[in-house]
């Protein structure tokens, strides 16, 4: 991406890379229901962080707070050192204007459980829409990179297909290409394989593994323990709106310290 950061491709440099996403004591409630009750997280540049937890544990909500799709009630979130959703000046918080929020989201890619592709646009149009409209790239440039990205996710032959004509796995791969087209600093995945038929899960996970190898910073809410163990640098287990346990995936999966983690893993493994 930009030369300003430590080259992430250089296979985990000795000096710890800079923090890409930092969450501090994040609280979120809907009315009286408190979904997040003080979440802390630190993901370094180039790391893959997998978030596990039972449904209702707040992991998806937390992910949506990172790009300000949900407003948090307390705490702070920084992405690449930039406070998300607010500006702090003289000890006072100011809400950001729509334009500023939208500008922050440009560097945060997101992939949804239900793909959310634009059904009235072709695959290629889906991918180049934001680069052309938001980044104001010339159409030809956006098109060229769009084709490249779709080739990377194995869909070079489907440029002119409509999302409704694709399988779930193919749609999700288009969605990944669409998010990558904005050249994000970090990618958020919200249960990217949960809406897929079991036989289609592999093709999406393969694309994500490729991304991780290329040094993309990723936060993945998932139920795929195998993926977490193989690709993850950090595993976070959430329950009841808090981080119960976190650490290197292999350690956490092999010997969970917390009873709730043990109970959860016993059920899904």
């Amino acid at each position: 991406m930009t030369g300003a950061t430590i080259p992430a491709q250089a296979a985990r440099p000795a000096a710890a890379p800079k923090v890409m996403v930092r969450a501090e004591n994040v609280h979120k409630s809907y009315g009286h229901v408190e979904v997040l009750r003080g979440v802390d997280l630190e993901v370094r540049s180039g790391e893959v962080c997998c978030v596990l937890g039972p449904s209702g544990s707040g992991k998806s909500t937390f992910l949506r707070c990172i790009n300000h799709l949900e407003k948090i009630n307390a705490g702070r979130i920084w992405v690449d050192g930039e406070l998300i959703g607010y500006r702090e000046r003289g000890g006072k918080l100011y809400e950001l204007r729509e334009k500023e929020v939208v500008a922050q989201r440009r560097s945060i890619g997101m992939v949804f459980q239900r793909f959310n592709l634009f059904p009235h646009m072709t695959v290629l149009e889906n991918v180049i829409e934001a680069p052309v409209r938001v980044r104001r790239e010339p159409r030809a440039v956006a098109r060229e990179r769009g084709v490249e990205l779709l080739d990377r996710v194995g869909l070079a032959a489907k440029l002119d297909a409509y999302p409704g004509q694709l399988s779930g796995g193919q749609q999700q791969r288009v969605a990944i290409a669409r998010a990558l087209a904005m050249q994000p600093k970090v990618m958020l995945f919200d249960e990217p394989t949960s809406a897929l038929d079991p036989e289609l899960v592999g093709e999406v996970l393969d694309v994500m593994k490729g991304l991780a190898r290329d040094g993309m910073t990723m936060i993945v809410v998932t139920h795929e323990i195998g993926f977490a163990r193989e690709v993850g640098d950090l595993l976070v287990f959430m329950d009841g709106g808090v981080v119960v346990e976190s650490g290197p995936p292999r350690e956490v999966i092999a010997s969970p310290r917390h009873a709730r983690t043990r109970a959860f893993l016993a059920k899904v493994l």
Partner: peptide, 24 residues
């Protein structure tokens, strides 16, 4: 989900309306 996806891509409310929501 369409509005969310457009928002996550950095599109403004007006762009989302014109390019994504109204056509559908």
């Amino acid at each position: 989900g369409q509005t969310e996806a457009a928002g996550a891509l950095g599109m403004t409310r007006a762009q989302t309306l014109r390019r994504v929501v109204l056509p559908q």
